[in-house]
């Protein structure tokens, strides 16, 4: 593993209370090797923008609340390995509360 490999990430942002429509934030130079998509979100949250909204709890692939869409597919972000180019969006067919935080009251089973 080379230490230098860094990812390019595009993240969906939307606060229905204030934004007229969703938009994307883009980040370059994000460490991703050996990390999950959730690790990447935590990195972006901490280093770049603490207003990013996303969910997780068990960090162990069990609770299903970290569900989101990576490059067009629903995944559990705490167990999905990060990739070099990522578009991260809210889970499919879920109402967005803010950014990646969706209403989970209709339970879905994990796809990945």
């Amino acid at each position: 593993m080379s230490e230098q490999a860094l990812a390019k990430v595009k993240i969906y942002r939307y606060n229905p209370k204030v934004d007229r429509e969703p938009y994307y934030d883009e980040y370059d130079g994000i460490p991703f090797e050996g990390r999950t998509v959730l690790d990447v979100l935590k990195y972006v949250y901490e280093k770049h923008d603490t207003s990013l909204a996303f969910r997780y709890s068990c960090r162990g692939g069990l609770c299903n609340v970290c569900l989101l869409m990576l490059n067009g597919k629903n995944v559990m972000s705490c167990k999905k390995l990060a990739e070099k180019e990522m578009i991260i969006e809210p889970a499919k067919n879920k109402k967005v509360i803010k950014d990646l935080m969706v209403d989970l009251s209709e339970k879905v089973e994990a796809g990945v």
Partner: peptide, 10 residues
């Protein structure tokens, strides 16, 4: 730092 009320993880 984040002053937005909604879903403020910080």
């Amino acid at each position: 730092r984040n002053k937005t009320r909604e879903c403020n993880r910080e």
